[in-house]
């Protein structure tokens, strides 16, 4: 019973954090800040939802498989974010501060 309540709390807060990240995708001003919003859903929402599901198992092989999914997602999603940011930077995308700098140089 306690486990069920705990899992409910974890699942609901996980859903809340994923929605937060999705809204951040629309609200944040430029590409690099949007990556931060996406990484919220990637890290904390994954941890919360998977651990919420683990509490609903009988702690057998199913729980271990969920743990594997968690480890895979936590290993791969920062790597994907980093690869994305790196290729955006090498492709010549500027951050907000750099755009402001070039505009100031043009004006003055």
């Amino acid at each position: 019973m306690i486990l069920e309540t705990l899992s409910t709390i974890l699942l609901i807060s996980g859903a809340f954090f994923s929605l937060t990240g999705a809204i951040g995708l629309f609200k944040f001003p430029d590409f690099f800040t949007r990556v931060h919003a996406a990484s919220v859903t990637d890290s904390i929402a994954t941890i919360l939802i998977i651990s919420g599901l683990i509490l609903r198992t009988d702690f057998d092989l199913v729980a271990i498989k969920l743990l594997f999914i968690l480890v895979f997602l936590l290993l791969t999603s920062p790597t994907a974010s980093h690869a994305l940011a790196k290729s955006a930077r090498h492709g010549g995308l500027l951050t907000l501060a750099e755009i402001r700098d070039t505009q100031n140089k043009d004006n003055g």
């Binding site: 995708l25 949007r34 974010s81």
Partner: peptide, 13 residues
């Protein structure tokens, strides 16, 4: 890159 970001998020979700 914004497109790839969105698609990546769809994938993990």
């Amino acid at each position: 890159y914004d497109r790839i970001l969105g698609v990546n998020m769809v994938g993990t979700k």
